[in-house]
């Protein structure tokens, strides 16, 4: 059992170069830190880590909130709460259960849904929906790490009957209930429920089979 670690205060220069300039030849600039390291680093209260974290995820978090609340001011409030929550709960993040991005967008989505739980205008128009659907099925990858699984999911969505794909985007991304989807699509409630169920089980079967 080693008494001294492979690292100690003596083994490492006390003054590392400023992180924003990178940490040397083999080093990692703070904006290149892996997602979970950046998240862990938030706990230090360090400004550069916080900035890098916010810059990496703000567009995704804001988009997630906006898709549900349909109002930019409200979406900003939700995005702010999302980052605050991530900051406070960084240590409960579990990388086995998904990526930092998934964790954050789930927080943002749930906060957004809670914010508009009661009454709200439907946050999406048919034109918006078509654009989102297109982006969902064919958009660029956020990170090469998840590229393969993301690409598979996009392909699986693109392969769904369009009415099922629309139902899933309305539900998952815009947070519409089956009843709201029925109104939006001018279809009976039972049909909306069937589309959701059929779409989900097809996605599951496709992803499972690959």
């Amino acid at each position: 059992m080693p008494l001294r670690g492979f690292w100690s205060r003596r083994a490492i220069p006390a003054r590392l170069p400023p992180v924003s300039h990178g940490v040397g030849r083999a080093g990692v600039p703070v904006d290149r830190l892996p997602d979970d390291m950046l998240l862990a680093g938030l706990a230090t209260g360090d400004e550069e880590i916080a900035v890098a974290f916010v810059r990496r995820f703000q567009r995704s978090v804001f988009a997630t909130a906006l898709a549900v609340v349909g109002d930019r001011q409200l979406a900003e409030d939700v995005a702010q709460q999302t980052f605050e929550r991530a900051w406070r709960h960084a240590q409960v993040f579990d990388s086995r259960r998904g990526s930092v991005r998934t964790w954050l967008t789930t927080i943002a989505h749930n906060l957004a849904v809670d914010t508009v739980r009661t009454v709200r205008p439907v946050p999406v128009t048919p034109d918006d929906l078509a654009a989102v659907l297109d982006a969902v099925a064919t958009g660029p990858e956020h990170h090469v790490i998840n590229a393969e699984s993301t690409a598979r999911l996009r392909r699986a969505i693109a392969a769904l009957p369009p009415d099922q794909a629309r139902a899933l985007v309305l539900a998952a991304i815009h947070g519409l209930t089956a009843r709201e989807i029925a109104e939006f699509e001018h279809i009976p409630l039972g049909t909306a429920k069937t589309r959701i169920r059929a779409g989900m089980s097809k996605l599951r079967a496709t992803l499972h089979a690959e």
């Binding site: 567009r59 995704s60 804001f62 988009a63 997630t64 989505h109 969902v136 999911l153 969505i157």
Partner: peptide, 15 residues
């Protein structure tokens, strides 16, 4: 699947 679907939303520039 639901959580992953959500991450596919296209990025939006905040205000």
């Amino acid at each position: 699947i639901s959580d992953d679907l959500r991450t596919l939303v296209p990025d939006t520039e905040p205000p």
